[in-house]
Design a protein around this nucleic acid. Structure first.
Lengths: 241, 241
DNA sequence: TATTATTGTCTCACTTTGAGACAATAAACA
DNA sequence: TGTTTATTGTCTCAAAGTGAGACAATAATA
């Protein structure tokens, strides 16, 4: 069946990728009380960009994004959500891609598929910061964490994509179990609160937050966590399975 | 500047459209206490489908959707939201498009761009039922309203798209002013409640709903509406500008 | 042993919501 | 003209949820 389809309308112009379609992912992690995202820096260009990529002809869109995340973070089974499709003509800037390719020693003809117009499907991912080994790809010098409220200038409309991802995450905060994906298996109530505060960008009342979380009945309480600081030790919690 | 770009990476394989990219729109209307959507029926095939289309090379994605809606409904300035991108390989069924084209007298080669794999960006739109003149396109016999909970079998994964659109609409119900787009300029509190009930698919307590809506301070009260029925006449409301 | 910074829980006022009661009223009917 | 009926607008009362703070418990330090 796959063979039949392969012979129908095969598009050889994209090296096995779907032309005009890209994805970009905003990978959120949490560390040191701050919300962070992964950024790539392309060789010899000074361009910072979100980790993104293209979809292969025989590959599901969501799988393409997971493949890209696997390469950059080493993680499988990442929590992933679509957030928006950026499809304006104004994002068509072939010079940018040309510069990146040229800086990497690739000289492609002007009608190359990578220099065409792309719409990009933006995703956000939530991952456990400590489990990640950020890994640059062939075109990049680095893949590094940046504070979400202290980002360098980003390529193209990637700043808009980050903003949209953060807005979507905020809007989903009360409907999805966000902490589960950003925190280690066991965590203190304070850490959970800090995740919420980092996402919302504003402080939350401690007692109200604690009461609310406990009343949801989704947390399991474990032993205490002795940090060494001179005060009452907090309990550790995990999410109920 | 546009001319410069035009000469770069021009893709002549899609008759001026971006290959691999489609959109489908779930157009919601409200009439007779029911939530309805627009469906097209393709000539000589028995296929029912959502109104969809393709993106031109020099056109914004969102504008392409508005163009399609304008053609099918005659309306400008439609309330529109993205809801999801369907990008699985399993939706690649070139026979379906081939059948539709063949039934319309178009015989295209197997490598034609329309027979390639597409991802589709799903949108939902909210419109005032009474303002619409549903208009079929060149490939369709009809463009007609159907009860959202009494739909015919739909082509491809269009049933999934409708489900996703409805879920998204439900999730947005408390954050966006949905009634404003589905109702006429002036409406009764009962009509507004019926919109909410139709979207949520469950009854709402009348007194609580009325209290809530009034307390939001977004409604302006006008004169009474005398329907001719033997009971107290309700006020008419409009949304404050 | 006293001190200090945090944590877990409780209280109290205030707001929101669920559920129902009830009077007002537009047209139909006797 | 007065009565009936279905619906509408508003009110009440209890239950649940939230904001803001008080306070005792406690892990390490002085």
């Amino acid at each position: 069946m796959a063979t039949t389809k392969k012979n129908v309308a095969e598009d050889t112009s994209g090296d096995g990728y779907l032309t005009h379609i890209a994805y970009d992912s905003v990978v959120f992690g949490f560390s040191g009380e701050k919300l962070k995202i992964l950024l790539m820096e392309y060789h010899n260009t000074g361009f910072f960009a979100l980790p993104g990529g293209f979809v292969m002809q025989e590959e599901n869109l969501n799988d393409a994004v997971r493949r890209g995340l696997k390469e950059r973070t080493g993680l499988d089974n990442i929590y992933l959500e679509q957030c928006y499709v950026f499809g304006d003509v104004s994002r068509f800037k072939p010079e940018v891609m040309k510069t990146i390719l040229y800086a990497n020693g690739h000289n492609v003809p002007d009608n190359h598929w990578l220099l065409g117009r792309f719409i990009t499907i933006a995703y956000y991912a939530l991952i456990n910061y400590e489990h990640v080994k950020p890994t640059p790809d062939a075109l990049s010098d680095s893949c590094t964490w940046y504070d979400v409220d202290d980002l360098p200038a980003l390529m193209l409309d990637h700043k808009d994509i980050v903003t949209k991802a953060l807005q979507t995450l905020q809007a989903n905060l009360d409907r999805k179990l966000v902490g589960m994906n950003l925190l280690p298996a066991r965590f203190t109530m304070k850490a959970l609160q800090q995740v919420y505060e980092a996402i919302l960008g504003e402080p939350i009342r401690r007692t109200t937050f604690q009461r609310k979380m406990l009343s949801l009945g989704i947390l399991k309480r474990h032993g205490k966590h002795f940090s060494g600081s001179a005060n009452k030790a907090p309990y550790l919690y995990s999410f109920k399975k």
